[in-house]
């Protein structure tokens, strides 16, 4: 087993909403491990808490209104990020653990050149001179496959297309050679053809640089060929977690089943048709349903599901905790046949 990099236990990030509409329990008890060089996929519909989870890892949650609850635990190579002093935390951000965001159009600062924005982290973390950092930025632009990097380095974000900006974001995140890269829906805002290119690029860079990647997406189809392990999130919780081949071969949670059924088949290209087979939508984070949070949308749900919240149950064959599911079906498998 490779070295354990990141250990997350019982992460809870809540938001106090305005006008007393209650507390949004955006992330509500998420646990996972990330090993060196591994790729972890976090999958779930919009509003399931994927972004809040990833922002929490770098402690980028706006406080207030958000806060990470005591009892949560995020450990990077033995350092508890939740008790770290601000300065030590900054030394990790963008240096050991970096992040790219969903919106390449708004995530770059419009008034600075892309070269300056890439170079900045290298100057701050590695103490590079401006000149060396600029050379480094050009190198990074070359690495992420931006054509004509010597010219592009002096361009402003508005002069680049969405795909090129996302490449710049990747270059910026990787400039210090982080151990962990968090990519929050890096392709969602892009055209389908560009999506494939960016995913390919991330794959290639991971092979070359050997960092661990957390790839967040709402599309199970994207993780299939890319990630080692999948974490399925629903309503702020992990509902299923398994190695990728196992998850695709033996999805146990009805939500995972639904996600899989909505993945567009390769032979029938329908990239726009997603999640049609799961009726309803993710409820507001201020009002998660009682019992199993998925029960109002679940085709198998029975009375137990409406009152009793299922824990993560071990479904692993052989290795313990390799496949876990938050569903009462695991305790009462006979119920599965009674699908309406």
């Amino acid at each position: 087993m490779t070295e354990l990099l990141l250990r997350v236990r019982d992460l809870r990030t809540y938001f106090v909403t305005e006008q007393g509409r209650g507390t949004a329990r955006a992330v509500d008890g998420v646990s996972f491990d990330l090993h060196a060089g591994e790729t972890l996929g976090i999958v779930g519909e919009s509003g399931c808490g994927k972004t809040v989870t990833s922002l929490s890892l770098l402690r980028l949650i706006p406080e207030p209104p958000g806060h990470i609850l005591p009892g949560s635990f995020i450990e990077l190579e033995g350092r508890n990020l939740l008790t770290l002093a601000p300065k030590a935390l900054r030394a990790i951000r963008g240096n050991e653990m970096a992040m790219i965001f969903q919106e390449p159009m708004t995530s770059l600062n419009p008034v600075f050149t892309v070269g300056d924005q890439i170079a900045e982290a290298a100057i701050v973390h590695q103490g590079l001179s401006r000149r060396a950092a600029r050379a480094r930025a050009i190198e990074m632009l070359k690495l992420v496959g931006l054509p004509d990097p010597e010219t592009r380095v002096d361009h402003y974000p508005h002069q680049l297309s969405g795909g090129m900006r996302q490449r710049v974001m990747i270059a910026m995140a990787l400039v210090c050679g982080p151990k962990v890269l968090i990519a929050d829906e890096p392709t969602t805002a892009l055209d389908v053809t560009i999506q494939a290119q960016i995913l390919e690029l991330l794959n290639r860079l991971q092979d070359e640089l050997g960092m661990a990647v957390i790839l967040i997406t709402h599309d199970l189809g994207i993780v299939a060929g890319t990630v080692d392990r999948v974490l399925v999130m629903y309503a702020g919780q992990v509902v299923e977690s398994a190695p990728t081949p196992e998850l695709f071969a033996r999805p146990l949670h009805p939500y995972t089943e639904g996600l899989l059924a909505s993945v567009p088949r390769l032979d029938t290209p329908h990239p726009r048709r997603r999640l049609h087979s799961i009726p309803g939508q993710v409820p507001a984070a201020t009002a998660w349903p009682a019992g199993c949070r998925f029960h109002p949308r679940c085709p198998y749900a029975w009375d137990r599901c409406t009152v009793e919240e299922p824990p993560l149950l071990d479904a692993g064959k052989g290795e313990p905790a390799s496949h876990v599911v938050r569903c009462w079906l695991l305790a009462e498998p006979a119920r599965r046949t009674r699908q309406p």
Binding site: V124, H125, M169, M172
Partner: peptide
């Protein structure tokens, strides 16, 4: 704005985030 979050994610000191970005 998102780019201010990006600046924080880079590990810049808060002073630089506010006074520059």
């Amino acid at each position: 704005q998102d780019y201010v979050r990006t600046a924080r994610a880079k590990g810049l000191p808060e002073r630089r985030v506010v006074l520059v970005h």
